[in-house]
Amino acid sequence: MILVIDIGNTSIKLSVMDHLNVYKLIRSDVSTFTNEILNLKQVYPDIKEVAYCNVGDFPYELKEFLKVNFEVVFEINHQIKLPFNNRYESLTLGNDRIALVAGGLFTEGNNTPLLVIDAGTCVTYDFIDSDKNYFGGAISPGLQLRYQSLHNFTENLPLLKPQPTKNITGYNTETSIHSGVVLGMTLELKGAIKQYRKAHKDLKVLITGGDSELLVKQLKNRFFATPFLMLYGIYNLYLFNKNL
């Protein structure tokens, strides 16, 4: 077992896991991070290794804290070896997208084209073909950003929380917003998947992220949410580099 840390835009996930199981999952933030780590070390004193992926605010002193408390600290970055061929034509590929692709390969194997959709603060689409070539994908605003934009950039629209909806025609302000945001996102997902499947008929689709459960329901059970995809990606990138 090792400690896997996913440092996102809105929270920090701490997970004790191995290649088969997630034994403990804790949501933290910068203010509670050190205490949560020390508590985990008391429960799992034999854990000496930590692997983490950082896309959010993670101060230098917390990185140093990990180095003091663990024998091995592995960070996802652009210098590590990858279990796929990176064809992305930019040096700004996010570490989280690297981990998601690795998690997708671990989940579905290496011989099928794969589309990984992460429905978080942003919605990211990442495509890898059957020869393990990663080409990129797309980035669009997530559900929360769409709701917040309507509220922040208009005078009178309220800030709502995401909720499932079946009504394409809203009958008041609130239902109109839910229709525009949630059904709009659902149609975006369906359209993207349809376009990829035109070119790759045996495409596998994985949906993960904080809003994945809601969106999978909107897609009418054609897909399944994969909540630990990022964590397994971080874990397997660590193993891949450890064993080289």
Rank of each mutant, 00 (worst) to 15 (best):
I5K: 04
D6M: 04
G8R: 11
G8K: 09
N9Q: 06
I12M: 10
V16D: 04
M17S: 03
N21P: 00
V22W: 01
K24R: 14
D29G: 10
F33H: 02
T34I: 00
E36I: 00
V43N: 08
P45K: 07
D46E: 15
I47D: 07
E49M: 07
Y52P: 01
V55S: 06
V55T: 14
G56Q: 05
L62P: 04
V68K: 15
V68Q: 15
F74M: 04
I80W: 07
L82D: 02
N85A: 09
N85T: 14
N86L: 07
N86T: 05
R87K: 15
Y88M: 08
Y88L: 04
S90P: 04
L91S: 13
L93N: 03
R97I: 10
T107S: 09
T107F: 11
G109H: 05
N110Q: 11
L114M: 07
L114Q: 01
L114V: 06
D118A: 11
G120V: 05
G120N: 08
V123Q: 08
T124V: 07
F127T: 08
D129S: 02
K132R: 15
Y134W: 14
Y134T: 11
S140W: 03
G142W: 02
Q144V: 12
R146L: 14
F153H: 13
L159Y: 08
Q163L: 13
N167T: 11
N167C: 11
N167R: 13
I168S: 12
T169I: 15
Y171P: 00
N172D: 15
E174T: 14
S176L: 05
V181I: 14
M185G: 01
T186P: 00
I193Q: 04
H200Q: 14
I207K: 06
T208P: 06
G209M: 11
D211W: 08
L219V: 03
K220G: 02
F228I: 00
L229Y: 02
L231S: 03
Y235Q: 05
